Simulated scan of single mutants.
Amino acid sequence: MTSPTDILPVGLEDSLPSSAARITAAMRACLDVLDSHGYDRVRPPLLEFESSLAARMPGLQTPNMFRFVDPASLRTLALRSDITPQIGRIAATSMKDAARPLRLAYSGDTALIRASQLDPARERLQLGAELIGTDTVEAASETVTLAIEALQAAGLTGISVDFTLPDLVDTLAAQDMSLSRNTIEAIRRELDTKDAGGLTAAGGAAYLPLLFATGPFEDAMAKLRELDAGGVLATRLDGLEAIARRVDAMENATESGIENGGARITLDPTERHGFEYQSWFGFTLYAEGVRGSAGRGGTYRIGGSEEPASGFTLYLDRLAEGAPEPEAAQVVYLPQGHDRDAAAKLRREGWRTVAQIGEDEDAEALGCTHVLEADGARELG
C-alpha cells in the first residue's frame, strides 16, 4: 500500500528507467545536432530574481511561477517556468560583447504553479536553441529547420510544423485608424477562440476571412494573398514562403510518406496561444506518438536590450513518448573475484557491467545478458 507521504503532487511524476532512458537518448541526440550547427550550450540557474525574468520576456506570466523571498537579499526569487528569458539575460549581460549572430543552446527543468487541463504536467524538461542578434528570414529558416532536424535525430517521425503570424492583427489594424484599442483587443480575443459570430459582434467582420485562411500551407497562403489586397502583409508572406522552401529542401525525410523533406507544413495565421512574446513569425512542432505539441518557437525581441532573436524550445519529456526505445545494451554479470582488467576492457568497448554484491543473486533478473568467465563473456540462457 502506498503511504500518503509517498504521493507526488498533482502534475508531477517520476520517470522510471525505461522512460528516463528515452528522455536521455533524445536529449543527447538533440544536443548533438545543436552542437554540430555551432550552438554553444549554456546552463542558467534554476532560480532567479522574479524581476529579472519578467524584464527579459514581455508577456511572461510570473504569477504562474513558484515565488518566495530570498533570505540573503530579501528580494523575490522565482523558479523558472521558461528558460528563454534567461538566455536573453545572458545575451544582454555576460555575452553582450560576443560576436553576433550569437548561437546558444540549453537544456534544463522548468516548473509551473498550475497547468492546463489539456497539459496537466507542472514540470517540463526543456531543450532549445536561440539565434541572437538578427531578425531575418534566413535566421528564422535556420531555427525551423534546426528544430525539425533535432526531432528527426531523436527518432521522431510524422513531423509537422504549423506556422503563424503573431502580430497579424496589429499589422492589419494599423491600417484602419477607426478601430479603438478595445475593439482591436476584442478582435484578437475572438480570433483566438475562432468564433465567427463573436468576431462580427466585436466589430471585426472584415477579419472573418482570416478564420478560413488555415490548413495546408499552399492553400492557406493563397487565401492570405487574396486577402492582402493592399500588400500590407506582402513582406511577411514572402518570408513565410522562403522558410517553407527551406523546410521543403531538407534532407533525411522521415519514412511516414512525407514527400516535401523534413516535415508537413500547415498555416494558422491567427494562432496566438503560446506566442505572446513572438513578433512576426511563430511555429509549433508536432510528431507521431507525441501528445500535444513537441515544441514551439519563433522570432522575438529580448526585453531591455530590444535585441532581435529567433529560437525554439522542445519539451523533452513529452517528445520522448514518441521516441523509439534506445537499443538494448549488452550487460555482463561480474561474479565475485572477477578479472577487473577484463571488466574494464569490456566497458571501454561499450558493454555495461553489473558486479555481484551478495550471494544468491539472479543475473538474468538483474538484466544481464552475459556473464564474465575466465575466457571472456558468455551469453546467459
Rank of each mutant, 00 (worst) to 15 (best):
D6T: 11
S15G: 07
A20Q: 05
T24Q: 06
R28C: 06
S36R: 15
H37W: 13
D40A: 14
R41W: 13
R43N: 08
P45L: 03
E50R: 09
S51H: 01
A54I: 08
R56K: 11
M57P: 00
L60M: 14
L60N: 08
D70K: 11
P71E: 03
A72K: 10
S73D: 03
T76E: 15
T76R: 08
S81D: 11
D82S: 05
A98I: 08
A99L: 11
L104A: 15
L112R: 14
A115W: 15
Q117H: 13
E123L: 07
E123D: 09
A129M: 09
T134K: 09
T136M: 04
E138A: 14
V144W: 15
L146I: 09
A147W: 02
I148M: 08
A150H: 06
Q152L: 07
Q152G: 07
A154Y: 13
A154G: 05
I159N: 06
S160N: 02
V161E: 01
T164M: 03
P166D: 12
D176F: 14
D176A: 01
T183K: 12
T183L: 04
E190V: 04
T193G: 00
A196F: 00
G197S: 02
L199E: 01
A202L: 05
A205T: 11
L208P: 01
F212A: 12
E218Q: 07
E218D: 10
A222C: 04
R225L: 06
G230T: 14
G230F: 10
G230Y: 09
G231C: 12
G231V: 14
V232R: 13
R236P: 10
L237I: 00
E251S: 13
I258T: 15
G262V: 00
L267I: 06
T270G: 03
E271C: 05
G274P: 10
E276M: 07
Y277G: 08
Y277A: 07
Q278R: 10
T284M: 02
L285K: 04
G289Q: 11
V290Y: 09
G292I: 08
G295V: 03
G297A: 12
S305T: 03
S305I: 00
S305K: 05
E306A: 14
F312R: 11
T313D: 07
D317T: 09
A320N: 12
A329D: 15
A329Q: 15
R340C: 02
A342W: 00
A342D: 00
A343C: 11
K345T: 02
L346R: 01
R347F: 07
R348A: 01
E349R: 01
T353P: 00
V354L: 12
E361K: 12
D362I: 07
A363D: 05
E364C: 06
L366Y: 00
G367Q: 03
G367N: 02
H370S: 02
L372K: 00
E373W: 00
A374I: 00
D375K: 05
D375N: 04
E379N: 00
